[in-house]
Design a protein around this nucleic acid. Structure first.
Length: 482
RNA sequence: GUCCCCAUCGUCUAGCCUGGCCUAGGACAUCGCCCUUUCGAGGCGACGACUGGGGUUCGAAUCCCCAUGGGGACGCCA
């Protein structure tokens, strides 16, 4: 296969948000295209008017872009094979349904939804819930068909599936999959409202958009025989199919909204970095063939191979995502992180007006923060004096014994140069003069300055907070003791 | 119910195609120790898996069959 002609697509339907399972499918398509020097397209499958949601499209675009999955061709960016929105291609589907009708590969069916429902119920009662439609209209005579049409009966177009034998296709990651034909019913191709079903629309579009590889979720495996039938009926060359394993929730079953944050944007809101989610999702069902885990996009692309895609479903382990995000937090450019955090700080009511100071805060906290939101929530003391002290820590550290030290520091610190060595030297000399160890004073200083027990290096904090602020807080702590 | 897919530590996985190098490797989580003025940070270490049963073979995590378990499909949804 000429790699120039590798073309893959992600084809979501605008029925809601983009969840991580869908994002992973998009991601693998993206990686496959980039690794092969091919094209990644985005097609919108909006053929179900009842489930359409207006703002869904924006959410999907936004999610993909946030993750860095930019498409070369498709909805909102255009290309030579558009339109890329199925509701704008209705006549094409209709023409092709007509074609199948004309050569006997499909037929018109006048059964009502009510009758279909009835048939399903009866089958269920008899415990033979398979095979689908009972093919009542399959052998209607031309007269009957005309009569029905003349009397204005609505109809659907159904595929005339073979009655015996089996259908097989080769899946890129699973090998040959063979399905007995009795599992393939006479699927609806064109609905009464003139819209195509997924089966017709995706086959027609994949053909005309010159899609070389169809990579999609493995819930489509069972439908693929129908698609094979359609390709044969049209006389078209089939794309290569690759069915990706689903992502499971830690509690078992498909990952869903109900089982925790499942949409891409939810993860953004929870404070995850796009690079980390990207990296994490990549490793859900794929590996580079060695022990690398933290990898840049270009490293991933360089070592991406569809052969390494696993065929078994993976559980979405949020703890590992969090760890990975922490790895990205550590090395993320502070200025860039600050852009994310400053709005969150402001939301908490902190006044942040010096972006350079803010970036400095980020530098001090990013190493020990796993999520952007965590960083946002643990930085209050950099912007306002502590309003209280952690009770447990205060009981231990802010005792009578350290008060003299705090007082002495309050007195001596204002006179020194606010540099690391000078501060540390002052602390040491104060400690020595009181016959205490510096190790006794430092935890108290930390508490005085931040109000809490943990955090960045004490000296780093004092330096960043500045002299006036530090001294003021130390005095406050001394007053607190009594 | 019928059909399809899948099966290595709790989780993500390497190894499986091309049997021996596997007393099964890495990562997350957990636990312990160390470092540190503190810490959800860092360092070191421990715990921990080939679903079961048959076969093939000198030899099976690796190949075959069955069972079991999990997932999916069975819509005028995608």
């Amino acid at each position: 296969m000429n790699t120039e002609n590798i073309r893959v697509r992600f084809a979501p339907s605008p029925t809601g948000y983009l969840h991580v399972g869908g994002a992973r499918t998009a991601l693998f398509n993206y990686l496959f295209a980039k690794a092969a020097g091919g094209k990644f397209l985005l097609r919108i499958e909006d053929t179900d008017r009842t489930r359409f949601q207006e703002d869904s499209l924006n959410e999907i675009f936004e999610s993909l872009k946030w993750l860095g999955l930019d498409w070369d061709e498709g909805a909102s960016v255009g290309g030579d094979f558009g339109p890329y929105v199925q509701s704008e291609r209705l006549t094409l589907y209709k023409e092709h349904a007509e074609k199948l009708l004309a050569d006997g590969s499909a037929y018109k069916c006048f059964c009502t939804s009510e009758r279909l429902e009835q048939v399903r119920k009866e089958k269920e009662l008899r415990k033979e819930q398979h095979g689908g439609y009972d093919r009542k209209c399959r052998d209607l005579s031309a007269e009957e068909v005309n009569e029905n049409i003349d009397s204005g009966m609505p109809y659907v177009v159904r595929l005339k599936a073979p009655l015996d034998g089996s259908i097989s296709f080769e899946d890129m990651i699973r090998g040959i999959i063979e399905t007995p034909v009795n599992m393939v019913d006479d699927t609806v191709l064109l609905k009464t409202d003139g819209f195509p079903t997924y089966h017709l629309a995706s086959v027609v579009d994949d053909h005309f958009m010159k899609i070389s590889h169809v990579m999609r979720g493995d819930e489509w495996i069972a439908s693929t025989p129908r698609h094979v039938l359609l390709y044969k009926a049209f006389g078209w060359e089939m794309p290569v199919f690759a069915h990706l394993p689903v992502i499971l929730s830690p509690t078992g079953g498909k990952l869903s909204k109900r089982k925790g944050a499942a949409s891409v944007m939810d993860y953004k809101k929870a404070g995850y970095l796009p690079e980390a989610l990207f990296n994490f999702l990549t490793l859900l069902g794929w590996n580079p063939g060695d022990d690398r885990e933290i990898m840049t996009v270009s490293e991933i692309i360089a070592s991406f191979s569809a052969k390494k895609i696993s065929s078994k479903p993976a559980v979405f382990d949020e703890q590992k995502l969090e760890w990975m995000n922490g790895q990205y937090m550590e090395t993320y450019p502070a200025e860039k992180l600050a852009e994310e955090v400053i709005p969150l700080w402001r939301e908490r009511g902190l006044s942040v007006d010096d972006t350079e100071y803010a970036a400095g805060v980020v530098r001090l906290l990013q190493v020990r923060s796993k999520r952007v939101t965590e960083l946002a929530e643990t930085a209050d003391y950099f912007f306002k004096d502590p309003t209280g002290y952690d009770e447990k820590q205060a009981g231990k550290q802010l005792k009578e014994a350290v008060k003299p030290a705090l007082d002495k520091l309050t007195a001596e610190l204002p006179a020194i140069k606010w540099e690391r060595e000078d501060i540390e030297g002052t602390i040491d000399s104060v400690a020595a003069s009181l016959e205490m160890s510096a190790g006794k004073i430092k935890p108290a200083l930390r508490l005085a300055v931040t109000g809490v027990g943990g955090g960045p290096d004490l000296l780093d904090m004092l330096l960043h907070l500045g002299k006036d602020c530090s001294v003021r807080r130390i005095k406050n702590a001394s007053d607190y003791i009594g």
